[in-house]
């Protein structure tokens, strides 16, 4: 059984060490004796200490921390879809990308009825567009 504390402790320790190295290489400007990396270095050192604490808990099994379960068949497509949505705004604009997103997201989340898959995205997309553009005077990607 995988212990989540060991895994996240190790990952955050790696992040802390990488951060310490990156912070140490940041330069000092002018006469200031405090470099741009002073504060981030302090934070990464503290993060490293917390990571060691989490690792210690994991090894000592202070709490029963089982690796979390994921509903991968739903979560992965949904994550890919929202990333696609963010990138598609640039080339497809708000209306088309939102319509594609709404239909696909509702389908992934288990909606089967055709009239809902067609009607709700159309209605909601145009309602949001009109509200934001005409009521709030906010420009949306076109």
């Amino acid at each position: 059984m995988k212990n989540q504390d060991v895994i996240v402790g190790a990952l955050s320790l790696v992040l802390a060490v990488l951060g310490m190295v990156a912070s140490s290489s940041l330069p000092t400007q002018g006469t200031s004796n405090v470099s741009a990396g002073f504060y981030p270095l302090l934070l990464f050192i503290l993060l490293g200490l917390c990571s060691l604490g989490i690792l210690w808990r994991g090894f000592k099994k202070v709490e029963r921390n089982v690796f979390p379960s994921f509903k991968w068949t739903r979560i992965i497509p949904f994550i890919l879809l929202i990333i696609f949505y963010a990138f598609s705004l640039n080339w497809a604009g708000f209306l088309i990308s939102t319509l594609i997103f709404m239909v696909t997201a509702m389908r992934i989340l288990g909606e089967h009825k055709l009239w809902k898959l067609a009607g709700i995205p159309l209605l909601s997309t145009f309602a949001i567009y009109i509200t934001f553009v005409h009521l709030f005077q906010i420009t949306l990607p076109s």
């Binding site: 705004l89 708000f94 997103f101 989340l109 909606e111 995205p121 934001f132």
Partner: peptide, 20 residues
Amino acid sequence: TPMPIMLPLIIVMCVTGGYA
């Protein structure tokens, strides 16, 4: 309220608000 409708709508609101 059906989640398959509410969750995508919240994402659209996030995108619209975040872009603004």
